[in-house]
Write a protein that binds this DNA or RNA. Structure first.
Length: 875
RNA sequence: AGUCCCCUAGCUCAGUUGGUUAGAGCGCCACCUUGACACGGUGGAGGUCAGCGGUUCGAGUCCGCUGGGGACUACCA
């Protein structure tokens, strides 16, 4: 007897132990074997801001499934882990953390603050590693990276210098999105627009030298303090004559020109008059440039009104100023009316503060020359996006892309490698300059840092050592697959494609799988306020990593993923089932895998050929579905096979032989051999989904390899396909189900046993059913099976999978429900048969439908006729 | 406003080039403590595939329209 499995499945008792062993043995690290094809993938680096949430559990489970599958399939596999410094986000949490201790960042100074952030980073990247470990992620920790590592920072600097030299990075003054809370510029993609219930204030601007007033409508009255023009449409008959005249700005009494501008003004909208604030609105800024208007900045970087707004408003918060301006306008008689209005307000995605459009000097990437090849790469198929529907979104964004604001007024991040001298010269080089090469004056480095996505955009190659031609870079770049959430398609995926093509000449990966958002069972987003957040670690502690992983996989069809406690519970029952079925198998298996003789197929009985054929189909299905990222299909196929074919049928059918109730000793040892074969194959197939439980069980099988994670992944073999066995076993299963069904319907209990008659079979089938009678007797709980001949009168007759059966029930009154059920059954069959008759009478159908469809219909028609006849006899 | 996605059993979802009787999990009902498992077994109830129209011998599947829900992008003062 071999070592048995613990009676109860307790994941906590082995998961951490196994992971440690894998790591110590170096299974996560690629091997040095030039013969093997490589497979490489980089982790979407989690932010070092805090703990991982369920979305991280999903994306890393999906990666690990592919990685383990590829590794077992013979690829030299590398999964690079790491974390992202996440500029704004991390600076924000650390700042908040310090503030709670009464410490202010500005008082600390830049160097001291950055040091604090590094401390935070050390602590959190360790925690993140621990969490990924608990999930079973098989990443190569010897290659762990961080976006602010020296090596990665060198890649960042290299790219910056190169783009600057190529004229694709420039510094300039433009209207950008400003976050008054974080006090930094942010890029377009970082602004989130939300519909907000707002007001439309109508304000009268008197026209100089007349008693006419122009009424403008605005959602932001406070900006009127910075108005430098009023615009109308040049062809608008109502106002045409006023173009060139001046209006008097209420409150401030500034004389501002009335201009005609066809681009800015839609005469149909509102009053057809627009106030122009070039310093605080994107369109007004453009208008200002066209008409050479003054920019008056009335809102400062802190979101408070500047001196230019006037003494009455200076230092007021912009929203307080709004109320006060409206009040003044009302008092002074300029407020015409207030309307309710719904408009989209942009806010900073990270902190939620409403964005202030502001004119500012920043660094930009000229993006169009980078975007063009990136569009082409997806269009040509060099980069394949899965699900494909995201391609449209990608193209739409890339084709309308604006220059990328890359400078951030922060302390945490890659400091921009530009050096300024007092004479206004700027130096950008790889080498660290001390004096200005143009005038010799001492230089100082730019204080701004780069957008976090600038460095994560280099991740697939900077983590492999680029710009150096390192062995890792040469072997593993470009990577194969990228798996990430669709929410960072623009932030990250698009930028990696652009940078990768520009700097390595290759797309950084050939396939992108975009996973959906994890939602709760009702399809709602997980949020702390609703209280439906699931912490992945809680789940792992409760039911084990395998149940969580399998649940995530089986729910992942490419769209959003509904996840709830009951779902997780359902699949943890599956893990438990695997455990128990394996326990049963191990009680009987008496050969070690490494000593097992190859199976001699000619000696196998139909039931064994059947389960091997089913396993083989499952192997084919799982491999096929994984190759197209259908995690749900792959895991469902495994679930159905293991539970509903292997456990429900095969194990039950093997029992009589295994327990010595039927067959010879030879039969028994063959059955044991097949049991071992199917368990081994199932565990290997399941391993990428459930690494821990499969390893724990597999260790008891005595395999050649020291670990299942480096054992070969099953591949389907044509020789194992056995349609004949499948057909016969389908009939056996259907007969058993039918007998169980009528027994229950007739009100008998499972203890009541009957005789079964089988007829309407050919000689081969007759032999098979005679041979397999014990299966029917055991599983359908019969006394005897009589094959051939006519069944006696009074038996319950049916036709199942073409086999005529009759069950001999003792005299018992048939209940009215049973009579009704039979009637409905007959009714259903009649309706179906009528449909088929009509179809087969239709010449068009016979002519146009493929032959196998017609043949199928005819077969079904014949079967239904026979069946109807039998069912009617039962009445 | 534009683009895309979704509407199938009480709930959450599969259903891949149109083709026999539309599936699963959970939930529900009845029975069963059978020597791996009650996180189990057996059986069952439950669907006019959002609606309308079209193409076709044949539509859950393809096309159009309507209704409902969602995502993304852009933005109108």
């Amino acid at each position: 007897m071999r070592e048995e499995l613990a009676k109860r499945y307790e994941p906590a008792s082995f998961e951490e132990r196994l992971y440690k062993k894998w790591e110590v043995e170096g299974y996560f690290t690629p091997v040095e074997d030039p013969e093997r094809p490589k497979f490489s993938i980089v982790i979407p680096p989690p932010n070092v801001t805090g703990r991982l949430h369920i979305g991280h559990a999903l994306v890393n489970t999906l990666q690990d499934i592919i990685v383990r599958w590829k590794r077992m399939s013979g690829f030299n596999t590398l999964w690079v882990p790491g974390t992202d410094h996440a500029g704004i986000a991390t600076q924000m949490v650390v700042e908040r953390n310090l503030a709670s201790k009464g410490i202010n960042r500005l008082e600390m100074g830049r160097d001291a603050f950055v040091e604090k952030v590094w401390e935070w980073k050390e602590q959190h990247s360790t925690e993140i590693k621990d969490q990924l470990t608990r999930l079973g992620a098989s990443c190569d920790w010897t290659r762990e990276r961080f976006t602010l590592d020296d090596r990665l920072s060198r890649a960042v600097r290299y790219v910056f210098v190169k783009l600057y030299e190529d004229g694709l990075i420039y510094r300039g003054i433009a209207m950008i999105n400003w976050c008054p809370q974080c006090r930094t510029a942010i890029s377009d993609v970082e602004v989130e627009f939300d519909e907000k219930q707002s007001k439309l204030w109508h304000i009268a601007y008197p026209v100089e030298g007349t008693d006419r007033r122009l009424t403008v409508a605005t959602t932001r009255p406070e900006t009127m303090l910075g108005d430098t023009a009023v615009a109308v449409h040049p062809d608008d008959a109502r106002y045409k004559d006023l173009i060139g005249k001046f209006a008097i700005l209420p409150i401030v009494n500034r004389r501002i020109p009335i201009i005609g501008d066809a681009e800015l003004v839609d005469p149909e909208f509102g009053t057809g008059v627009v106030k122009v604030t070039p310093a605080h609105d994107k369109n007004d800024y453009e208008t200002g440039k066209r008409h050479n208007l003054e920019q008056i900045q009335v809102i400062g970087e802190d979101g408070r009104m500047t001196a230019a707004a006037g003494a009455e408003f200076e230092t007021l918060d912009r929203f307080e100023a709004r109320n006060k301006v409206v009040e003044r306008l009302r008092d002074d008689g300029f407020l015409v009316k207030i309307e309710d209005y719904v408009n989209n307000v942009g806010s900073h995605g990270k902190c939620g503060t409403i964005i202030e459009p502001m004119v500012s000097r920043q660094w930009f990437v000229k993006i169009e020359p980078l975007a063009r090849p990136a569009i082409e790469a997806v269009r040509s198929g060099a980069v394949q996006i899965v699900p494909q529907s995201w391609e449209a979104t990608y193209f739409n964004w890339m084709e309308n892309i604006h220059d990328w604001t890359i400078s951030r007024q922060l302390w945490w991040g890659h400091r921009i490698p530009a050096f300024h001298c007092p004479n206004g010269h700027t130096t950008v080089t790889m080498a660290e300059p001390t004096d200005c090469p143009q005038c010799g004056a001492p230089v100082e480095q730019e204080t701004d840092v780069l957008d976090t996505w600038f460095s994560s955009g280099l991740w697939p190659f900077s983590t492999l050592g680029w710009p150096d031609e390192t062995p890792d870079y040469k072997i593993f770049y470009p990577t194969d697959t990228l798996i990430t959430g669709f929410d960072i398609l623009f932030f990250w995926v698009a930028r990696m494609i652009m940078f990768g093509l520009r700097f390595t000449g290759k797309a950084p990966f050939s396939q992108v799988f975009l996973n959906g958002l994890v939602r709760d069972e009702q399809g709602r987003k997980m949020s702390k306020t609703i209280g439906n957040v699931i912490d992945p670690l809680d789940v792992v502690n409760e039911v084990g990593a395998d149940a969580l992983r399998f649940t995530l996989a089986v729910s992942c069809s490419g769209r959003d993923i509904p996840l709830g406690k009951s779902r997780i519970q359902g699949y943890s029952a599956f893990v438990n089932k695997i455990w128990n079925a394996s326990r049963f198998a191990l009680m009987h298996i008496d050969v070690e895998l490494k000593d097992a003789e190859p199976i001699e197929r000619e000696n196998l009985r139909t039931v064994e050929r059947w389960i091997l054929s089913r396993l083989n189909s499952t192997v084919a299905e799982v491999n096929k579905q994984l190759s197209v990222f259908r995690y749900d299909e792959a895991s469902t196929a495994l679930y159905k096979f293991f539970w509903h074919e292997f456990c429900d049928w095969y194990i039950e059918m093997a029992k009589p032989v295994l327990l010595g109730k039927h067959g010879t000793d030879g039969d028994r040892s063959l059955a044991k051999r097949v049991l071992l074969e199917v368990l081994d194959g199932s565990l290997r197939l399941l391993h990428p989904f459930m690494p821990f439980v499969t390893e724990e069980i597999w260790q008891k099988l005595g395999g050649v390899e020291p670990s299942i994670m480096i054992a070969p992944y099953p591949i389907s073999e044509e020789v194992l396909e056995d349609p004949e066995a499948e057909r016969l076993m389908t009939a056996v299963k259907a007969i058993i189900t039918t007998v169980r069904n009528v027994r229950a319907e007739r009100g008998f209990t499972p203890k009541d046993r009957f005789r079964l008659f089988i007829s309407g079979v050919d000689a081969r089938e007759s032999a098979f059913f005679t041979d397999s009678a014990y299966l029917l007797i055991e599983l359908a709980r019969l006394t005897e099976v009589i094959v051939g001949g006519e069944p006696p009168a009074g038996t319950h007759k049916d036709v199942v999978e073409g086999v005529h059966i009759a069950v001999e029930f003792p005299e018992k009154e048939i209940s009215p429900e049973q009579i009704e059920r039979t009637r409905r059954e007959i009714e259903k069959s009649r309706a179906e048969l009528a449909g088929l008759d009509a179809k087969l009478a239709n010449e068009q159908f016979l002519r146009n439908a493929p032959p196998q469809i017609v043949a199928g219909a005819q077969a079904r028609q014949a079967e239904l006729r026979e069946r109807l006849e039998k069912l009617q006899q039962n009445q």
